[in-house]
Amino acid sequence: MNSDCPPNKIITEAADWLIRRQESPLTKQEQEQFDSWHDQSKDHQKAWRMAQTLSRSFQSVPSGLGNTVLKRSQKDRRQLIKLLSGLLVVPVTGVIAFKTLPVSNWTADLSTATGKQKTQILADGSRIIMNTHTALNILFDDHLRQIYLIEGQIQISTAKDSLSRPFIVTTQYGQVEALGTVFQLNQLSDGIEVSVQQDTVEVTTLSGEKQLLQAGQKAVFSQYDISHPKPSHTADSAWVEGQLIVDDEKLSHVIHEISRYRHGWLRCSPDVANLKVSGVFQLHDTDTVLKNLANTLPISLVYRTPYWVTVDKPN
């Protein structure tokens, strides 16, 4: 095994053992199971060695000190964000600040800000289109073409590789291996939606579930399971053209989609959440989209500031 590439399965198993041992002392039988797990390979041993180092590190820190330092307030972070960002001229709350420039994205290889898209051609000729608010790392070596999706939505068209290296997208829930294809990943709140436009991909969750998806299919996976494949629609890839296509969707869903492309706070009041919407919207100008919605639906837009908009019932 290439030591640069963490073996997801072994790491997940090590995490499970850590949790089991924390819940209650192992029985004799469990201890035997653990021992034979541990002795399977060098990688198993390495994973467990790291697990022990981690526990020891925490144990070595006096809890008062650890609490003050590691749980230090979000306020400092907020100041940090203000310091770092030339964009935040209006005073905003922490939530919005985090949304504008997520901390985790600053160290990513490639990222897009809210409302922006970017196309990147990789060293092997593959193409990545990144949607709004997306961050990823690129790890290419002699054996593997690997993308680590930190957050957001991407469409990938893989190119044929002269070294025949596999093309894999890794996420926090598992990985997707491309078998010569065009496909998309979208990070949802509790999983990843994969939809395939050309050929086939293989999804493997952290827990080891596998599923092949063909062109025209989509599915959502989390670390434990993969949903049944459903047909995907052309509307799913409309974002690549900067459009949002909806057919008989709830207004709350449409507002949520639009909010991904806007700085600040966009909220839909429960009073109008269930209104149904159909149409094609241009995502580069969300203010106009909102105005059009207000012209065709019984709703009103309440602008507290340009960054704080509520969609409400007519006043």
Partner: peptide
């Protein structure tokens, strides 16, 4: 807990070059 453990182990895996 599982997510945190997996995250920490994955992260330190690449740093530990043994």
């Amino acid at each position: 807990m599982q997510q945190a453990y997996i995250h920490c182990l994955t992260f330190s895996w690449s740093e530990d070059s043994e």
